[in-house]
Amino acid sequence: MAKPKVAFYWNASCGGCEEAVIDLAEDLLKVADAVDIVLWPVALDFKKKDVENLKDNEIVASFINGAVRTEEQKEMAELLRAKSQLVFAFGSCAHEGCIPGLANFTNREGIFERVYKTTESTKNPEGIFPKVKTKVPEGELTLPEFFDTVYTLDQTVEVDYYIPGCAPPPDIIMNAFTALLEGNLPEKGSVLSPNIALCDECDRNESKPEKLEIPEFNRVHQIEIDPEKCFLAQGIICMGISTRSGCGQRCINVNMPCRGCFGPLDGVKDFGLRTMAGIASIFALENEENLSEEDLSKLMDKLVDPAGLFYMYSLPSSILRRKRMEEK
């Protein structure tokens, strides 16, 4: 019997998700034995036309990492969708937009202006910017269109499963591969990691006070962090309260608070707002009843860049999706 065909593709991401596949180590050999890889640009020399030559649905599963921010990425996502029975959004960028999604605080013009003009190391007196079409003596050169907005994979094509994380850890990836090969995949639309909050499995959970109250926000560089104690109890915002578990506490173990790369639990519509609601509820001030709304408002200013913090990994998948660019 022919081995099931699978494809890996890389859209707007850092490459960490490709590394994550390599991090399967010996298990990667088992996967490679069990499947026939038909596309994996970072590792194997297949081309777009090889995929185009396949029949529709001939690929059993495509694992697509990265957000979608160019015409080329959209085209590849659509091509792989047409040729695949199942599409997996692989990693936080494809799942929720992740760090590339922070570009939704600006737009193409803002990004081009910064990258090609105003960075301290750029010298571009002629104001040359990338163009979709450029005429040169030899003919016309083309570049894919760069979108104003970064999209998640499921805002571009239909997605069947989500493998969360920045990047997904090997056990989560291997569980997904095993479930695929053994035909044990859950209901379509599922996120393939446990539907419990990271807090619930955190080693520091026991040090969390029964009634959690943060009198002030500390940032990680402002205090010496106790490596045994709950971050929230130390006044450091940790998003483990609302973030899906399965990461193996990678950040917590190196004494950094959770920033939410595994995304929300099932049923949460807006991860950033849900997390903000939780953090706001434990921000308890002494004598709050004696504070005016203005006093309280000033204290809230001490939480630097709330939108950037709570939407660090999920701005494109939030209700607003992006900063409004129209004139007020």
């Binding site: 605080f105 950033g272 707002l273 903000m276 609601a277 953090i279 706001a280 509820s281 921000f283 709050e288 009843e289 709304e293 309280l296 408002s297 809230m300 200013d301 939480l303 860049d305 709330p306 939108a307 950037g308 709570f310 607003l320 992006r322 900063k323 409004r324 660019m325 007020k328």
Partner: peptide, 30 residues
């Protein structure tokens, strides 16, 4: 009114609204 909620939840609502307003400003919504 503040201080009159039996659950003290209106303080939580106020804090959430204050933070939401900041997030909205950052996203260019009045």
């Amino acid at each position: 009114p503040l201080g009159e909620c039996k659950h003290d939840a209106n303080y939580k609502t106020l804090r959430r609204v204050l933070l939401l307003k900041r997030m909205l400003s950052q996203l260019n919504i009045e």
